[in-house]
Amino acid sequence: MIVVAGEALIDLVVTAEGQRAVPGGSPANVAVTLARLDEPVRLLARIGTDEYGRQLTEHLTSNRVDLAWAVRADQPTSVAVATLNATGQASYEFRLAGTADWQWTPQELPELAGSPATALHTGSLALALTPGAQVLEDLLAREHRRDGLTVSIDLNLRPSIVTDRAAEQARVRRQVSLAHLVKASDEDLAWLYPDRTVSDVLAGWREAGVSCAVVTRGGEGAWLLAPDGSLHEQPAVRTTVVDTVGAGDAFTGGLLAALADLDALGDRPASRLAAVSAQQWAEVLRQAATVAALTCAHRGADPPRRAEVEALLATAS
């Protein structure tokens, strides 16, 4: 079972035709992607009991995301206003003050030792906004020390919300050192490190102990730095883009699902990832890119199911 920790919020999607409220949040999107790829997944989230919270609960359970560890919170649900331009690219405005997602207390977190968890994935605003970010960071530190599962982080930075670049650099430096697998977009890195190259950043992460680092590059594809130091490149899978909402989260879910299928997640995580062959890394990247492309072909954060992914992979091969 993969455990995903972090926000489950409402995307208020605004287009020329009007607006609609749809379930979202980067970690929740990753969890739904994993579930649709037939990977057992449990979401560790704080979900409000308001109408938006009930909409999120229904969406997650209908997609077979396990909510056994979710906290029913008194605070309202977070809202992200996603405005789409004519090409389907999304820009975001967030309504987060006093909402449920960021109020974690240590007592609300489960004990992962002895559970069937093989990986813990988190990232985005859940690791950036206080007071809950520190609680989740402590969880990452504890699990990294235990060495009993794979720790995965997707930076998914939001400079419009967390604007202090120096503070974000310090936070990311701390948190990356607690992960075995780190994923970021080229936009994340361009904002976070305007004076550094991607290769320099990845080399630094490797020195910090990260086994595998992935950088997504939108329509240019993705790079993956493997545990042996080799760099793998995957071109973007061509598709008709409806919008890009949730594409990065779908990529992350596809990546984790592919690694789970290889039995590359679990205890002794560095050793498991080191055992993945070059050919397998290429297949992992191809699956992640395919999942992201199929999501771009759908409206909103609507990741594909396993059969749809396998059909496109078979066609491409």
Rank of each mutant, 00 (worst) to 15 (best):
G266D: 04
D243V: 01
G6N: 03
A128C: 09
V241N: 04
V172Q: 13
T150D: 12
A247V: 05
V22M: 10
E108P: 13
R72F: 06
G218Q: 05
P131W: 15
G25N: 05
R299E: 10
G300H: 02
L178M: 08
L112V: 09
R42A: 02
V245E: 04
L189Y: 06
T105F: 01
G209L: 03
H298L: 02
R306Q: 15
W102C: 03
D11Q: 00
G114W: 12
V291G: 04
T33D: 06
A170R: 11
G248C: 02
R173N: 15
V241L: 15
A8V: 00
N29C: 06
A222Y: 04
L43G: 00
A170G: 08
V13K: 04
S26L: 01
A275L: 02
V162D: 10
L56C: 03
R72S: 15
A297Q: 15
L139W: 11
H59G: 04
G246F: 06
A80R: 00
L262Q: 11
A126I: 00
L225Q: 13
A236V: 14
V151Q: 07
D147C: 06
E108Q: 14
T216F: 00
V30N: 00
A270G: 13
L140I: 02
P27G: 02
F94W: 09
E17Y: 04
H121P: 14
R306L: 15
W69S: 13
A311W: 13
P235K: 05
A184P: 04
D164V: 08
E93S: 11
I153S: 03
S185E: 02
A257K: 09
A316G: 03
A117Y: 11
L127R: 08
A257L: 07
L273I: 05
D66H: 01
S160Q: 14
A70Q: 01
S199T: 15
I2S: 02
